[in-house]
Write a protein that binds this DNA or RNA. Sequence first.
DNA 1: TCGTTTCACTGAACCGATTCACTGAATCGA
DNA 2: TCGATTCAGTGAATCGGTTCAGTGAAACGA
Lengths: 349, 349
Amino acid sequence: MAGGPATVRIVVPRRRATIKDVAAATGLSPAAVSYALRGVQTSAETQERVQAAATELGYTANAVARALSQGRTGLVGVLSRSLLDLGEQRFVEALGRGLGEHGLQMVVADADGEPERERELARQLADQLVDGLVVSPLDPSDESWTDIGEMLPVVTVGDALAGPTVGEVVFDNRAGVSLVLEHLYGLGHRDVTVLTPSLPSTPDRPAERGVLEVGDRLGLDVTVVNSEHSIAAATDTAHAMLGRPPLPTAVFCLSDSIACGAYAAAAALGHPIPGHLSVAGYDNHAIGNALAPALSSVEWGMADVAAAASDLLAAAVAGEPRRGARGKVRVTPSLVLRASTAPPRTVRG
Amino acid sequence: MAGGPATVRIVVPRRRATIKDVAAATGLSPAAVSYALRGVQTSAETQERVQAAATELGYTANAVARALSQGRTGLVGVLSRSLLDLGEQRFVEALGRGLGEHGLQMVVADADGEPERERELARQLADQLVDGLVVSPLDPSDESWTDIGEMLPVVTVGDALAGPTVGEVVFDNRAGVSLVLEHLYGLGHRDVTVLTPSLPSTPDRPAERGVLEVGDRLGLDVTVVNSEHSIAAATDTAHAMLGRPPLPTAVFCLSDSIACGAYAAAAALGHPIPGHLSVAGYDNHAIGNALAPALSSVEWGMADVAAAASDLLAAAVAGEPRRGARGKVRVTPSLVLRASTAPPRTVRG
DNA sequence: TCGTTTCACTGAACCGATTCACTGAATCGA
DNA sequence: TCGATTCAGTGAATCGGTTCAGTGAAACGA
């Protein structure tokens, strides 16, 4: 991030050349200019003349006007659950890459963990400013998603909505959760605390429910603790949780961001990982290799999901009329084991 | 990031109600509807009637049409140097927060470290799709910035451009660099390697030049090594650098992302930090507290810079005609010392 | 040589809002 | 009671492109 001194410059914009100016300069009609610039229905000589006049005047087509007449802005709304989450940040980056390949730009908005805010932003963006929407719905059961889904192509990531669809990408988080819990169980852990991003007032959230069910099945004593998405907030949560007994022997963090918070808290409290405390994450973010010990984490195929989501959305935006189960993509999570988990102290030896 | 199964849903959009539909439904003219919805020049009774018809029809104003007639989209372009950089990601988040307070949305684009790409994206966005631009120019000396700066309000962060301005935010990276280098010198280091984000073909980049000059002044032996912005790439670079002699006694990373790479490489090669190798970062990202040992890093006021930048840009977008030195904000960097630096081995004891 | 096709281009409609200039009716003060 | 003002609402212009239908001239085939 380090650069030279930063400067803010604001300039009073000069009046910009319109297609009429180019038409006047060349003695043609605006229609002819429009055609010529796209190289259709015009002689090569005229095209050159128009091109020359356009560069002379510094003309570039007004994107808004074009969007109005084409009914297409080339913009896609990306609604992040929380831009403070390292995994979300990385996912947005990957989405941008994928959408860019289809000539689409991202309008990024941050729901900041609040379902109402997410819906409000979605409504705002849906007013034909964007051609489509990518969203990880915080409250997928909410009915207003149906309206939004009917207005424009929507790609959901994380949880499915109840509305009508024309394609699906699925990755099975339940399986990812099982992978970790079974691994911890196999090491001998019986008490594990799950640190999960806090989601207000949605008691039936699939991921959390999955955690409890899998725990039940294995005979694990699972405690669920909510945390904010940021590293700083997760540090506080983990600090509070690890600061008073009973201490769990393992912590499963439902994002690598939260795992970072657990590392910071464990270090501050003097709990060595994995000696006193096993930690597992979710996202398999590159940060996992920089932590000491390196973090074991669930790889859910962020890159593949982002690619699939952008491809499907791009197809829908381009007007592919396919309807039904087309475009269904399934990604299987896997557990990347590194050095942050070990048998619990009492069981060891 | 972990949620339930992810689903992509694409829906054939139904025809959306326009202002004419509402006009027809109420027996009024489109103009009257436009006024009524904004509560001006209409009787309370009519406003209610229009409001009712609008919700009945599910009408919301077409943002593109409004943008065309208002000459304002409410969109701001944010050009990131590299969205893989943790600091940049965090900065974008902060910008989004700041711009959101002014009712502006972000169009985020990633230059991916390439100056040409950055300029191309800037040009693309400048076509009146966005009302303004925030950018950390990779190649501030390039002349095409002048054209862009004349077209729309531009806020630069990181390096100043050569064009005309109406306001400035400055943070002094040279000072930040000095802070670190002086600290390392004071500890007894004489050989320090600087890991800096790679910027192609700009030999006179202020930050790098600053590093060399400050090193000269102190009598430090400074080696500059370029690295990509991502943690993974930085790990490779650091691995190569630390894998063969001569080993520096200290590494100064010009972003915390790169510092993460240095940590990963040092761990892989068995160089304890700060015992064998001191490491310092830049950004003071929250990740610094999760690393072991906690990372010493330069705090350059990301939050303040983001706030100042969004305020200035918002003011310019709103049409504040102030020109000249108004809005000049200066942020002073500081060094946050944690546990990643210590005297070099040979000097110790 | 005549009728048809192609070509290059034009005028006007259109996308969906906002806004200006105007009108007829109601209200006001004197 | 009359002229002036206010008020609610209308029609048309506007933003800056794209696109449809049409036109005159040139090229073409038989």
